[in-house]
Simulated scan of single mutants.
Amino acid sequence: MKYGSIILEKTEYITLKRLLNLSESYKKHPRKYSVDRLKNELNQAIIVDEADIPKDVIRLNSVVTVTTTDGWENSFELVLPEESDYQTNKISILTPMGLAVIGYAQHDVIDWEFPGGKKSLHVESVSQKNKKQTI
């Protein structure tokens, strides 16, 4: 892991904690492992201000490309659940993939148990979409 722990921006950390608390209904759902693992990772997460978050860290609205050793590749934008749209490759933070990658950085390797089995994901690229300016 590039930075020793996952890194989250403060407001995104709070949003993620709220979403995970609401996801308690996943106790017997295939996402249970992903929710539980991310909750554990949050205990050691590095929480930073917006200005201090490295550009290569996966966060909300990041565009990410991941691969596996068996040749699988996927590119997507990580979004809030209400913005999820598979047709435009917008993946919810609450999917197993979203829960797996949040807070990791480009070139990290993530071993994660998905509903279809264990995968070792390599984060090939991370880019940040421009955030809307507020006045």
Rank of each mutant, 00 (worst) to 15 (best):
H29G: 05
V66T: 04
N40F: 07
I91Y: 03
S84G: 06
I53C: 11
K90F: 02
Q106L: 03
A105W: 04
A105P: 09
F114C: 04
W72V: 08
Y86S: 13
T88N: 15
Q44K: 11
K90H: 13
H107I: 06
Y33N: 07
L42P: 03
K119V: 09
V48K: 09
G103L: 01
M97R: 06
K90R: 14
L80F: 11
Q87H: 12
N43D: 13
E83A: 07
A100C: 07
I46A: 07
N61L: 09
L60K: 03
M97A: 05
I91W: 00
A105Q: 03
Q87S: 14
V79Q: 00
L60V: 03
T69D: 13
D36W: 05
V101M: 02
I47A: 07
H107K: 13
Y26R: 14
V101S: 00
S92N: 13
R59F: 04
I93G: 01
G71S: 05
V79L: 00
L60S: 04
N61V: 08
K32G: 02
Q44F: 09
D36C: 10
R31L: 11
E50A: 13
E113N: 12
V66P: 03
Y33S: 08
V48M: 08
S34T: 00
N74I: 10
Y33L: 07
E50W: 13
D108Q: 08
E77G: 03
L78K: 01
S25A: 14
L60A: 00
P96S: 05
T69P: 08
L42R: 07
L80W: 02
K28E: 11
A45S: 14
S75V: 02
R31E: 11
F114S: 04
K90S: 02
N74K: 11
T68Y: 00
K118G: 08
W72H: 07
R59D: 10
A45V: 13
K55P: 08
I47V: 15
P81K: 09
G98Y: 04
P81I: 06
I93Q: 08
K55F: 09
T65M: 00
S75C: 05
V48A: 02
Q106R: 15
I102A: 01
D108P: 14
P96K: 05
K39T: 07
D36N: 15
P54A: 10
I58P: 04
S92K: 08
I53S: 11
N40V: 06
Y33I: 12
I53W: 06
E50V: 14
V101G: 01
P96M: 06
Y26W: 14
I91S: 02
